[in-house]
């Protein structure tokens, strides 16, 4: 339990957020969803740990 790091890891969190925002700026909702799907796969593989992935999915699945 608790392998997922939720404490901040980016020295500059704003820059990370901006990178994600800029990647979708000007995209339609469809195209952004496609981008996100690819991004999720790339990042999930980079993490390469099913426990972490499952914890992340659980966190992301919590409504509002």
């Amino acid at each position: 339990m608790g392998k997922l790091v939720t404490a901040l890891r980016f020295p500059d969190p704003d820059a990370a957020y901006v990178a994600l925002v800029e990647a979708r700026r000007g995209l339609t909702e469809e195209a952004a969803a496609d981008l996100d799907a690819r991004l999720v796969l790339i990042l999930a593989n980079h993490i390469g740990d099913l426990d972490v992935l499952n914890e992340a999915i659980a966190l992301a699945s919590q409504p509002g």
Partner: peptide, 20 residues
């Protein structure tokens, strides 16, 4: 289907996606 399309489109560029 969107997630699957993402796997297929990534496959030529990333080995991990081929294996998925």
């Amino acid at each position: 289907r969107r997630l699957r399309t993402a796997v297929l489109l990534l496959a030529p560029k990333a080995e991990f996606a081929q294996r998925m």
